[in-house]
Computed example of a mutant assay.
Amino acid sequence: MLRVAWWRGRTTDAVARATAFHARLEIRFPVITRLVDRLVSVNIFDSATRIAAQCFLTAVPLLFVVGAYAPAAVRDQLSASVSAVFGLTGAAQHELEQAFRPPTDELRQATGLVGGLMVLLSATAVSRAMQRLCKRAWAIPRAGTRMAPWRWVAWIALWFGLLVLQGPIRDGFGVGAWLGIPITLVTQTALWWWTQHLLLGGLIRWAPLLPGAAITAVAVTGLSVTAHFYMPRALNRALAEYGSAGSVFVLLSWLIVVCVALAISVSVGAVLSQEPFLTRRLGTSVTAPDTAGRQ
Rank of each mutant, 00 (worst) to 15 (best):
E95D: 12
T111S: 05
L78F: 12
S79R: 15
M130K: 00
R108S: 08
Q109I: 08
T104H: 02
Q93D: 10
V119P: 03
L120G: 04
Q93I: 09
A125N: 13
V126R: 00
A91H: 07
A129R: 03
Q93C: 05
L88W: 01
A129T: 05
V126L: 01
P102W: 02
A110V: 08
T104F: 08
S83E: 15
E106R: 13
V85D: 12
G112L: 03
A125K: 11
L117H: 01
G116N: 02
L96G: 06
L78C: 15
L113S: 04
V74H: 09
T111H: 03
M130H: 08
M118H: 09
T104S: 11
L120C: 07
D105R: 09
S122F: 12
T89M: 02
Q109Y: 12
A84K: 14
P102G: 02
V82T: 11
F100A: 01
T124W: 08
A91I: 08
G112F: 03
E97S: 13
F100R: 02
A84L: 08
A91L: 10
G87E: 01
L88Q: 06
E95I: 03
L96R: 02
G90N: 06
Q109W: 11
S83W: 09
A110W: 04
M118R: 09
A125R: 09
S81K: 11
A92E: 00
A84H: 08
L113Q: 01
L113I: 06
A84M: 10
L117M: 11
S81C: 11
S79T: 14
D76F: 12
H94A: 15
T124V: 10
T111W: 03
L121D: 11
P102D: 00
D105F: 04
G112V: 07
A129G: 15
D105P: 01
L120Q: 11
R101I: 09
P103S: 06
G87S: 05
G87I: 03
L96Y: 02
G116A: 04
L117E: 02
Q98T: 14
Q77S: 15
L117S: 06
A110K: 07
